[in-house]
């Protein structure tokens, strides 16, 4: 077991060995195997896409990796520490599927609040996070007056405020217009280039090609892993959706 490196100071992005590891991870809800024996290792500086239909176990997997849930069996490790671990959470960003922001507070107050919980001491960090999602001029607007897309951006800002080396994004672009979606992804790319490990869950296949690697999920399992091009080639199709269905079919056939 390795030790956790000390949290990165607010300013400079230290090249931390951001590694996510799952080992025979299982999560049962009663008789349902929401996560059914998943093992993988994710390297720093890359964007991973968890792709699968609703109910395939993407959110449950993210919750196990962020320590929100305790695995029924197996091991989830982030930055070398078994989850759940509160210490590691200071270095993990998590954008939930629902906005998870306080409607009665302003945009600035939301970002500052989460910054304080993450232990951010750098006073400029909340401002930077708002600038990144292009909300700096809306900092004093109460969330209830923001549009759906603006709330999504604010939600992302709250996940970035502590400049985490590991970032989990649960369906980040749902309800986000195409233009903003492009901005989101270019920002994710910039973060990854800076060494951040990013895990994005989505059921939108056309976003998949922006990821370095895809993990196809179905019924709580990872049924295939590889780059978009690689997966298409293996499935013998140009269409990622078709590729997913081929891999799903194989699983169904072998069961």
């Amino acid at each position: 077991m390795t030790t956790v490196p000390p949290p990165a100071p607010g300013g400079s992005p230290t090249p931390a060995p951001a590694t996510i590891r799952a080992q025979d991870l299982v999560k049962m809800f009663g008789p349902i195997r929401a996560v059914d024996g998943i093992s993988f290792e994710l390297a720093p500086g890359r964007i991973y896409g968890l792709l699968g239909p609703n109910g395939s176990g993407k959110t449950t997997l993210i919750r196990l990796l962020t320590g929100m849930g305790r695995a029924t069996a197996g091991r989830a490790e982030v930055l070398g520490t078994a989850m759940p671990s509160r210490a590691v959470l200071a270095r993990v960003g998590y954008m939930t599927q629902s906005d998870g922001i306080y409607p009665a507070l302003t945009a600035g107050e939301n970002v500052r609040f989460f910054g304080e919980l993450y232990g951010v001491t750098d006073a400029t960090a909340p401002e930077d996070a708002l600038a990144v999602v292009d909300l700096a001029d809306r900092r004093d607007a109460v969330v209830a007056t923001l549009s759906g897309g603006q709330r999504r951006r604010l939600s992302l800002a709250c996940a970035l405020v502590h400049r985490p080396p590991v970032l989990f994004l649960d369906e980040p672009t749902v309800g986000v217009d195409p233009l903003l979606r492009v901005q989101f992804w270019s920002h994710f790319r910039r973060l990854a280039d800076g060494g951040v490990t990013i895990v994005v869950s989505s059921h939108v296949m056309d976003e998949a090609d922006r990821c370095d690697e895809l993990l196809f999920m179905r019924s709580g399992r990872v049924i295939a892993r590889g780059s978009g091009r690689d997966l298409r080639a293996r499935a013998g199709t140009d269409d990622l959706e078709q590729a997913f269905l081929r891999f799903s079919g194989n699983v169904a056939a072998t069961r």
């Binding site: 962020t66 320590g67 929100m68 509160r86 210490a87 959470l89 200071a90 993990v92 998590y94 939930t96 599927q97 629902s98 906005d99 998870g100 922001i101 306080y102 409607p103 989460f114 919980l117 993450y118 232990g119 709250c158």
Partner: peptide
């Protein structure tokens, strides 16, 4: 119900 508790608990808060 608003999803903020989930987010709170994903921070190092005790």
């Amino acid at each position: 119900t608003g999803g903020t508790l989930e987010r709170l608990l994903a921070t190092p808060v005790a």
